[in-house]
Amino acid sequence: MSSRIGSCGGPPGGQGAIKCRCRAAKCKDIWFTFAGRAEDIDTILNELREAGGDTASIEVKAGAGGLPDSLTSTLSALANLPGGGLIIRGLDERAGFRPIALSEAQELKQALASKARSYEPPVQLTFEDAVVEGSLVVLARVHECDPSAKPCRASNSGAAYLRGWDGDYRMSTLEEQAFLAQRTAPVADRQSCTGASSQDLTASYVRIVRERDPQGPGRFTDRDELLQRSGVIDPDGIPTVAGILALGAYPQQWFPRFAIQAAVDSGRAGARGVRAQPTDLIRTSGPPSGPDRRSPPARVVRSRVGRGDRK
């Protein structure tokens, strides 16, 4: 059983499933990088045969008859597994992992990708094809969920799962608490905003902080120290993404698609299907300087299906 044609000196670097980039004209080797190691499809199949079934990071499904219900727990469990895992469709485990025909491989991928969206947070997948004994095999790499969002749960039931060798097990309350305790706050907004300078920040921020919170960050007499400890600038004095978004004179200079849309709820009981849509976008930033900065736009459009009226 082989998916390899020609010879190759080894797998290239990278993540997920990738084709070899060697110069051999007939080389069609396919290598997969997961769980911190690079392997080709033959090595994966040998590992499955030696184990006599699925492993902690690899789940094999025949692929006939659509998506099995067991995939609900498998996607959650592999997303919660350090390093993620691999789902292989098109092999028959009971027949020694022999390939079986996949009649609609594209529809299979679409269905699996759609199912992956029904999780909180959505499961991230990468698809690749391999050929085993002349038959197509679909490989879906399940990427590990970001630790700040674990555990990954099925949206319809709220259940989260763990991988236990070749099985999926619903997390206990204690196990869920362990994941929640390990969560960390996202830090992407601490990155420096390339091209920005302190001149692009709202000048009144330091004054307002010192007036309103003299015992907090306002106690720092040095302006740069106050801004750095507040996360507004980095150690080199460059504004952070958070600093520009919250206090930038015009954040859209760097993030042109960022804006705030405000809507007003009608407050009327039983007003089902009513939507509120602003006629204006809020594109300014900085600390509030008066009532006008805290008030939502006065002009909004409320509409019902088949009927619209301006209020």
Rank of each mutant, 00 (worst) to 15 (best):
Asp224Met: 09
Lys150Pro: 00
Ile58Ser: 07
Val187Ile: 06
Ile100Ser: 01
Cys20Asp: 09
Asp265Arg: 03
Ser197Ala: 13
Arg98Gly: 07
Lys19Phe: 05
Ser295Thr: 11
Gln252Ala: 12
Ala259Phe: 08
Gly96Thr: 05
Gly267Tyr: 10
Ser285Lys: 01
Cys152Met: 06
Arg4Gly: 05
Thr55Trp: 01
Gly52Trp: 00
Arg117Cys: 14
Thr284Asp: 06
Ser7Ala: 06
Leu45Val: 14
Glu59Thr: 11
Asp236Leu: 15
Pro99Cys: 08
Thr202Asp: 15
Thr279Trp: 00
Leu227Asp: 07
Arg219Val: 08
Ser73Asn: 06
Val241Glu: 12
Arg37Val: 03
Gln15Thr: 10
Leu180Cys: 07
Ala116Pro: 05
Lys26Pro: 00
Pro297Cys: 14
Val305Ser: 14
Asp166Gly: 01
Arg37Ala: 06
Ile30Asn: 00
Arg229Met: 11
Gly65Pro: 00
Ser289Lys: 01
Arg37Asp: 03
Pro147Asn: 07
Ile208Tyr: 03
Pro251Cys: 11
Ala105Val: 04
Arg299Met: 11
Arg275Phe: 02
Pro99Ala: 06
Ala159Met: 00
Ser76His: 03
His143Ala: 14
Leu201Cys: 05
Arg153Asp: 06
Lys26Arg: 07
Phe258Pro: 05
Leu67Arg: 01
Ser204Lys: 15
Arg219Asp: 09
Gly14Trp: 00
Gly14Pro: 00
Pro287Lys: 02
Glu39Gln: 02
Arg153Ile: 07
